[in-house]
Every structure is written in structure tokens, then in C-alpha cells.
Write a protein that binds this DNA or RNA. Structure first.
Length: 275
DNA sequence: CCAGCCCCCTGTCGGC
DNA sequence: TGCCGACAGGGGGCTG
């Protein structure tokens, strides 16, 4: 469930404890969560490299290493990446499948109950990721570019918002919240948004993501900040996970449907169905 | 270009 | 109380 605001919060929280530390050793009890899936090769390549910077691209955590490599982590649904001083790994976290021993007695752990996520060691980010759309909070994401990209796309707007090649970092929660804020039905074909709708949606995407970052992410189910505490964005949802509850704008019950195989929540009154 | 489906995985929850 | 199926979902892959 970690989306752009949650991943950004993790990245910000990891910088202080991780930058400047050197990877000394590595233990992986689940080779399927690392790439390459060969613990010995991964370990040999990682050992001795120092963490020099930590960035986010889409929902990927990108750790730059002194040897020129990047450690790229995707949390998918239930992944966590955190630094701890606690040496007794599996007593405190049974899903810590990858443990990187750092200097000073610290550990960087990748934990993932569901094992959808992964940690990849590569020469650069592009080696790990498919084609990614613009960063919604960067200057590269402009209203003109957004409107141009909608042209010729017949897909439901919600499905398009979830497409990482179209726009990077938006997931199920913030797609629902942005469409609610812009008062657009999730099934409206993307190329049939009016100019005014597209403008509202463009602004809404940036607003809900920015608010999510300021609230340090939404702790739905498994997401936690690197220090183990919860974000607060889940306390401000208007649509996501609110089926049957009154719309915060008009009071009508929020409806849940499925769009692109994802649970989708919207207000039938404020977000009227496409003709 | 796109809708739909499967798969990866496991904890949680509702029904019986 | 216990068992079982449905469900949650990011994203890659495949089919029609």
C-alpha cells in the first residue's frame, strides 16, 4: 500500500541513520526478495560500499552507494525498510528477509510479510524499473503535459492514474482521493475529461500527494514510518475505504466498485457517472 | 490501445 | 470453535 507519500516518508526517515554508513555484510533468508537472487553474489558486490544518498523515484527507494551501484527497494504491499541497532533479527521481526550489517553495530533490514517487494543491487535505477511517467510533484509534470497525455486515451481515468508509465507514484488510495477532490467519476474515459475537469484533477493529484507527505503517509494495514510509528493521512480520507459512510461534501453514502481490479471508492452524487 | 484475468503471498475476516 | 473461501493489492505478464 505504500504509495508516493509513504515511500517519500520512508526515504526522508532513512537519510539520517543510513547515509555515511558502510555495508559490511549481508544475510538473506529468502533469495526470492533480492535481485540478483543469488545471496553470495549480492553479498560480495555490496560489501564495502557506503551509502552516499537516498532518493525516491515513483514508489522506488533508491540508495546510492560509494562503489557506483544503487540499492533499489520496492515495498509493494507489506514491505518495510528500516535501520535498527537491535541485533536479534528474527526475535523482533520474523519477516526480515534481508539484513544488511552496517558499521557501528547497526542493521538495515528489508522486511516483507507478503514477499511481493524486493531489493535489487544494480548499476543504475533504469536497470530495475520499467518505463515510468513523470513525477507528479516535480516541475516536469505540467498541466499542458497532463492534458496532452490524456488525449486519445479511452481508458477509465482511474485505471490511467494507476498506470505507472502514465504517472509515477500514484496508487489506489491517492487515485481515489484525487478523483474525489476533483469531483470526477473513476470510470470516466480519460479523453472525455473536460478542460476544467482535467485542470481540477491535475491540481487535486498534487494536493492529495503533498498533503499525504505532510501527514507522513497513510498507515493502512501494514505501512509504518521507518521509526515504527504511524502516519496520519488515513485520518483524512474522503473516499478511500469509506464505503457506506457519508460523503464529507454532501452526505451521500460513499460507494465501492471495482475498477482495473482495484477497490474503488467514490461519491455517486459529487462524482456523477459518465453518460 | 485496452479490458480482463492470472500470479506472486499471507494475514484477516465473514459465513457456516 | 474451527474450517474454508474471499479479499486486500502493486505490478508484471499474457490473452483476446
Amino acid at each position: 500500500m505504500p504509495e508516493l507519500p509513504e515511500v517519500e516518508t520512508v526515504v526522508r526517515g532513512l537519510r539520517s541513520p543510513l547515509i555515511g554508513r558502510t555495508a559490511l555484510d549481508m544475510i538473506c533468508t529468502q533469495p526470492s526478495v533480492i535481485r540478483p537472487a543469488d545471496p553470495a553474489a549480492f553479498r560480495a558486490r555490496l560489501a564495502g560500499q557506503r551509502f552516499t544518498a537516498i532518493e525516491r523515484r515513483a514508489k522506488y527507494i533508491v540508495c546510492r552507494l560509494s562503489g557506483g551501484d544503487v540499492l533499489v527497494v520496492h515495498l509493494k504491499m507489506t514491505g518495510r525498510l528500516y535501520v535498527t541497532e537491535d541485533a536479534a533479527v528474527h526475535d523482533s521481526d520474523r519477516w526480515a528477509h534481508l539484513v544488511i550489517q552496517l558499521d557501528g553495530g547497526w542493521q538495515l533490514r528489508f522486511s516483507d510479510m507478503r514477499r511481493f517487494g524486493f531489493a535489487a543491487l544494480a548499476a543504475d535505477l533504469a536497470e530495475v524499473t520499467p518505463s515510468l511517467g513523470p513525477e507528479p510533484l516535480s516541475d516536469d509534470f505540467t498541466l499542458a503535459g497532463f492534458r496532452a497525455a490524456l488525449k486519445g486515451r479511452h481508458r477509465a481515468i482511474k485505471a490511467l492514474l494507476l498506470d505507472q508509465a502514465f504517472l509515477a507514484g500514484v496508487g489506489n488510495i491517492y487515485a481515489d482521493e484525487a478523483l474525489f477532490r476533483a469531483q470526477i467519476h473513476p470510470l470516466r474515459p480519460a479523453d472525455r475529461l473536460t478542460r476544467a475537469s482535467a485542470e481540477r484533477l491535475y491540481a487535486a493529484i498534487r494536493e492529495v500527494l503533498q498533503a499525504g507527505i505532510e501527514r507522513e503517509g497513510a498507515s493502512v494495514n501494514w505501512y509504518r514510518k521507518p521509526d515504527g510509528t504511524q502516519g496520519s493521512a488515513q485520518m483524512y480520507f474522503d473516499a478511500y475505504d469509506r464505503a457506506g459512510q457519508p460523503c464529507t461534501r454532501c452526505g451521500a453514502p460513499i460507494v465501492k466498485i471495482r475498477v482495473a481490479q482495484r477497490g474503488t471508492h467514490y461519491c455517486p452524487h459529487c462524482q456523477p457517472a459518465p453518460r
